[in-house]
């Protein structure tokens, strides 16, 4: 997948990622008799033929490259000369590189601040829209639209304009808060927030998922709570949140993984030039630095090592989230 932010990835199933469906009985249950065996063989053949594009793609474009990447990570490779084995040097160089540490900081800040804000916005608006009122469908569609265009170069260009000196955000900040930072785009401390704002603007994709989750919460639960005298806040805390926790879990997981991989918006918004991203590298997110090292400085080995660190980080975050799931995600049999 490209790093383009689309809502597509946000539509994973809630609950367990179940194995393949019932299918056609499977070969196992008809294992007796020569006719059955022939049929099993035919099923295998048909299965692998149908699967052949996927298998070729997996071998050629996923598994093979991953093995190659792991090898490159331990080499000095500039595309001109053959890769030269240098052991762990890429990794020690990486940890000693202040720019690498800086790009990690930028990325973590972006993920840690941006993802919760985006999800909070998505949930808040979903709660608002989860009422039977006229225009609901219209609002839902309109709020969703930014998720489709948010990752485009066009919107990054627009964002640069809206957040620059004397444009709307700068003026609002000056007149409402009395703060003059002279536009977020030029300020190394502020530009990352314009990137976060761009992420938040695309709250529509998780919102749609939240809405679908909210629709499945049984009305009777609220009615019973109301009879018990629970206020809106307690109803939200005791009923809504637990009931939609599976949806929340998947939104958190996917948005977090997605955020780690942001590229295009940061690249254009920061006005990528001369191997920098933003003023004083302020939007040098991890993938931008990977791109700079790999494609501008021709350090393919170093960039591969960086990619594996990203994979480890994302893997770790995923594992922690799955582990924490037990504590706060409630799978109600009825909800499915």
């Amino acid at each position: 997948m490209t790093p383009v932010q689309t809502p597509t990835a946000a539509a994973l199933p809630t609950g367990d990622a179940a194995g393949p469906g019932p299918g056609r009985g499977g070969a196992a249950e008809e294992r007796s008799g020569p006719g059955a065996r022939r049929r099993a063989r035919r099923e295998n053949l048909a299965g692998y033929l149908f699967m052949s594009p996927w298998i070729a793609g997996f071998a050629l474009l996923t598994a093979g490259p991953m093995i190659a990447s792991l090898y490159f990570a331990f080499t000095d490779y500039n595309l001109f000369d053959a890769p030269r084995w240098i052991g762990l040097k890429n990794f020690t160089d990486m940890f000693a590189d202040p720019r690498w540490r800086h790009s990690v900081d930028v990325t973590l800040w972006y993920v840690v601040v941006g993802t919760p804000l985006k999800l909070a916005a998505a949930l808040a608006v979903a709660l608002l829209l989860n009422q039977k009122r006229r225009g609901q469908g219209f609002y839902r569609a309109a709020f969703y639209a930014p998720s489709l265009i948010g990752a485009s170069v066009s919107i990054a260009v627009v964002w640069r304009a809206i957040f620059s000196d004397d444009a709307i955000v700068d003026r609002a900040q000056r007149s409402l808060l009395g703060m003059d930072v002279g536009g977020w785009i030029g300020d190394p401390d502020w530009i990352v927030y314009s990137l976060i704002a761009l992420t938040m603007w695309q709250f529509g994709a998780p919102m749609v998922i939240f809405l679908a989750g909210l629709k499945q919460v049984p009305r009777e639960l609220y009615e019973a709570a109301e009879v018990d005298g629970a206020g809106p806040w307690r109803r939200f805390w005791n009923i809504t949140l637990p009931m939609i926790s599976p949806v929340l879990f998947f939104n958190v997981l996917l948005e977090t993984i997605h955020s780690f991989q942001i590229f295009g918006s940061a690249y254009i918004l920061g006005g990528q030039a001369g191997g920098t991203c933003g003023p004083a590298d302020a939007t040098l997110v991890y993938t931008c630095y990977l791109y700079v090292q790999g494609f501008e400085n021709s350090r393919m080995g170093f960039a591969s090592a960086m990619a594996w660190m990203l994979l480890l980080a994302v893997g770790l975050v995923t594992a922690v989230l799955f582990w924490s799931q037990k504590r706060w995600v409630h799978y109600e049999e009825a909800a499915r």
Binding site: T2, L61, M66, S69, L79, L290, W308, L311
Partner: peptide
């Protein structure tokens, strides 16, 4: 799987 792990080796390929 983050796409970026495959970026460099796919490019080389």
């Amino acid at each position: 799987l983050p796409y970026h792990v495959l970026l460099i080796p796919q490019y080389v390929l």
